[in-house]
Amino acid sequence: MKIRTLTAVAAMLIAPGFAMSDPDDDTLVVNGEIEMVTKTEAPDHMSDTYVDTIMSGWHFRSDETQSLQMDDFDNSGMVFVDIGRDQWNTAEGGEGKSCASCHGTPEESMEGVRATYPKWDAEAEEVQTLAMQVNDCRESRMEAEPYGYTSGEMANIEALIAVQSRGMPVNVAIDGPVSETWERGKELYYTRTGQLELSCANCHEDNYGNMIRADHLSQGQINGFPVYRLKNAKLNTVHARFKGCVRDTRAETYKPGSPEFVALELYVASRGNGLSVEGPSVRN
């Protein structure tokens, strides 16, 4: 049974004539100003893998798709940053506050924030993702309804916050109070699941650069999230993408916001330490 599955997977991965399509060597500069680091040395914690260069998903896309991210008026994800800004400035909930009431403008208060999430929250005594922090503020400080974890509204706010860190290196902590969560995330990354018995690593570490049917497999980095996908013409969040990937291995998927996905997000983010925050990025 196992051998047949592996053969099926192998057959899917080795498309004739396309076996090895190397990611390209282009450089990403947004608006002629923001120089993105899209390739860099793999972080130390990956020294036990054979990956020595980490690369942004941008490199695995066609020239046409790549160019869509190079100007903020070509990047369709940016209109959702504008909508996110409206949300930021709108007072909601029992306290009659908006994000702006406490945080001023996103430019003032959110610089560098995206780059360090997920991170340890001392008060809640757990690792928190950006989405969890946003909802925490909404519920406890605004007395407003939380956003759906992978909803459009959450994606808009995440994009608005990500923009304030664009060009800055992803830098999530993996030691100290987060280390237990990080280890759990790492374990999840390397565990095979589902009818197809695939782990994240099988595709994104063992086969990045190869074609999976007509798609160019990336390293599965999340430095570009939330991502505007041409496929559904909207912003997509990390947990929505995780859910899709797990479902594609034909496994019972974890829920967005679940401790498993939070741990996985922390680990996957750390595999990108050093790459620039690109959100909102454009992918296929």
């Binding site: 999976i212 798609d215 497999l217």
Partner: peptide
């Protein structure tokens, strides 16, 4: 026009 990936 291509179909790529696992369909996800």
């Amino acid at each position: 026009v291509t179909i790529g990936g696992c369909g996800g």
